[in-house]
Computed example of a mutant assay.
Amino acid sequence: MNSPKWLDRILYPFAHHTIELQSGQLHYVDEGQGEPIVFVHGTPTWSFVWRQQIKALSRTCRCIAPDHLGFGLSDKPMDFSYTPEAHAQNLEQLIDQLQLKDITLVVHDFGGPIGLSYAFRHPENVKRLIILNTWMWSLENEKQMMKISSFLNGRVGQFLYLNLGFSPRMLLPKGYHQKRHLSKVVHQHYLKPLNNSRNRMGTWHFAVALKESGLWFASLWEQREKLRTIPKMILWGEKDKLLPLHLLEQWQQAFPEAVVKRFEAGHFVQEEKGGEIADSIKDFI
């Protein structure tokens, strides 16, 4: 595929790869050789969010980072369900098609439940788990998040997301503790793939899924013992304004054996602490 004109090839110098799924063409990065690391993004981001880690780690490892359907350079079909469960199925197809073995799985935001779903289904193929500002349980007790998700499921919320680009324009900046990391150029790389209402369907469905996919999230949490023997590292931006800090406490209670590193950064810790996150992953591997 050809690069869009807005894509800065210095910031994002990676070759384009695609696979055909039943619902559309999925774009992914595949850089370097060695142990495979699979990076799974959330919303409203895409593989671009992992660029600093891919540049550093692809010198010694094979770095694979897909764009979910509806995000980044992947297709944005109107007839795709856009549930986290459906994205998880797509991720599994990609890993299977690339025949990746003994992967290190790096997950963030909605990429947490999406990526960890693969780990539950194929724990024998996951060598390590690296978890950044995410969850894998029902958020029904997070009253504020449930209230917002219910609102976004309505006509006004849908209008905000689809017509006004609420997620990349308003929520994304709130995910940064130090706004200097969200330069105008970087911000454009999150706005451009979501430049019209049709292309924003994925972001809206994720907002709705905070509540609507609660049963699926809960089903993942019930299986957490399957992950017990997999080495884990948690890298957490403790200035996160989008996810409450007590989610980190739930991770630590569930997996006290996990290595935990806290950073003075917001939700998009891999953007604000790019080099430190890359070094932490490299050391862990």
Rank of each mutant, 00 (worst) to 15 (best):
K273D: 00
G237T: 04
W137Y: 08
L164E: 02
L100Q: 02
A209D: 07
D96F: 15
I37F: 12
F206M: 13
H246I: 13
T18V: 09
D67A: 09
G32Y: 06
S219F: 07
K184C: 09
Q188R: 10
P84Q: 03
I37M: 12
L235N: 05
H16T: 04
H246E: 09
Q99D: 04
F217L: 09
R9M: 06
E124T: 11
I131W: 00
E225W: 12
T83D: 06
N196T: 03
R51I: 07
E85N: 10
S167R: 03
H181M: 06
R200M: 09
G24Q: 01
H189W: 02
L243T: 00
C63F: 05
F284Y: 06
F268C: 06
L243I: 13
G237R: 09
V259F: 06
R198W: 15
G175E: 03
E212T: 12
H205D: 07
R180C: 09
H87D: 09
G237D: 00
Y190R: 03
F206L: 10
K232Y: 10
P231A: 07
L210I: 12
L100I: 12
L191P: 06
V107N: 02
F120V: 02
L191M: 08
P44R: 02
M1Y: 09
G275V: 08
A88T: 02
F255L: 09
L11I: 02
F206Y: 07
P193E: 03
I131N: 00
G237N: 02
L116W: 07
L162K: 14
E31F: 05
F268S: 02
Q89G: 06
H187Q: 04
S183G: 01
F166C: 07
K192W: 03
W46P: 00
G175W: 02
L245G: 07
R224I: 04
M1N: 01
H108F: 07
D30E: 05
E85G: 15
K192A: 15
I234D: 01
W236L: 14
L245S: 07
F14K: 00
L100R: 07
G111I: 04
T104A: 14
S197G: 06
H27M: 06
T229G: 14
P244Q: 03
H108D: 02
